[in-house]
Write a protein that binds this DNA or RNA. Sequence first.
RNA 1: GGCGGUAUCGUCUAGGGGACUAGGACGGAGCCCUCUCAAGGCUCAAACACGGGUUCGAAUCCCGUUACCGCUACCA
Length: 486
Amino acid sequence: MATPVTPPRVRFAPSPTGYLHVGGARTALFNWLYARQTGGTFLLRIEDTDKARSTDESERAIFEGLEWLGLNWDEKVVHQALGLPRHQRDANFLLETGAAYRCFCTAAELDALRQEAAARKDSFKYDRRCDLLPRAEIAHRVQSGMPFVVRFRVPEGETEWDDAVHGRIAFPNKDIEDFVILRSDRTPIYNLAVVSDDIDMRITLVMRGDDHISNTPKQILLYRALGTEPPHFAHVPMIHGMDGKKLSKRHGATAVADYQKEGILPSAMVNFLALMGWSPGGDRELMTLEEMIALFSLEGLQKKAAIFDTRKLEWMNGQHLSRISAMELEPRLTPALLEEGIATAEMLESRREWYLELIDLLKVRARTVLDMVRQAAPFFAGEITYDSDAVEKQWKDRAATAELLHAVQESLAAAAAWTPESLEQALRDLATTRGVAAGKIFQPLRVALTGLTVSPGIFEVLIAMGPELTNQRLRDAYEFLKASAV
RNA sequence: GGCGGUAUCGUCUAGGGGACUAGGACGGAGCCCUCUCAAGGCUCAAACACGGGUUCGAAUCCCGUUACCGCUACCA
């Protein structure tokens, strides 16, 4: 009863000409999810046939980006450039079977033709003039070493396929020109390299950006000419910037590494990316990778381009931040803390329990790891800076504030114990004695301890700081108040 | 220009002919909670691009129009 389907093989095939773009990452994610869900194989192919633009550095950036997102690939990375002999073999095969022909037109000639067409307001399409050359002439030119490219002879008819996201798409072949498949330097053009490689890698489903829709009929034609049935295709929508245009540097951060630096968690990034162009149906939004694997389906793919809204990403990151445990968060926060010089590795190691509790305290109100770093600073020994707005608002009367903080210090010193309950008792008693609202004490104290008007609950802050640092901070506050009293 | 694709709140989306007074989320406004800020709870504003069909009935199906996007290289 079981239907013996061969497990799917999908791939992500970026060209190493920059960094890992969020659009690319999203395409990779969909392929990965599909493979993981179906028990298929997810492959990575580096399309480095454009030697001028490809760099090792950007190849590394792609690996690191995918690894950070948790998208592991199953077999050895394929480098397209290494397939050169096969690409040439395939081109020769097409030449031999008559599916392709040599074209001796130079770039300059073609350019002139194109301009003529443009002047006539005609659309340009190669007129096959080299295909019409007499056999003898072709042989002569080849023998005399005249450079040529190989063009695919597009047959009559119509090319169509059943796209997994768009349904049936058809192109009249007459609208497709005889495209080049091999350059005069014998290197392959994209469409040939892709088809040759995808056949070689036994890809069963090509899932990629829908900017490739118009390449698809050409590729299908190549598959057939090469004697192979084409794979299935799924063209996923693009990701645009807030202005509705293709996402580019103008829109700010477009590399996944940028978001890594800004303190976005990979789990949030992947969750957010998945929702650009895919939905599990219903109201489901917050998901882990595992859940997405279970829920993923081609049917849930959207046809429409999505606009990348970083505000929702940040919200989502906040949600992931508050769900993740301090233990899991620690490895992401620590490097940032060290880099900012807020703490040292030894310090964090020696007070690990305390450190993990601090993380739990901070993660609730942070949207990014960087937020946490900023909020963590006051909890470590060292100078703090007083936010000018905070001073203005909560320490307006310097002398009165100094007096108040002295009273607070005494109350804290007199507290039964350094526990949230005792400290709260002490401070609330102080408020009662002085006949003021508790907030009138908490707020100035918060500024003294953190330099900010925003922090975790004041008793949590006191506990996390401990009596020593608290007293130090209060002494610093007196100094500041005295110095700025004039 | 030619060809192709797409069209639900500002944004991400749910919706598969009657369950739609079109749901959720981000963002916005407000309220509650409260020592601040988050978080959380509640409330409000906010969309089926337009025009024709098909049908007893259309956000859902078909056709046009419009707008937007993509491709149109010896780039990928």
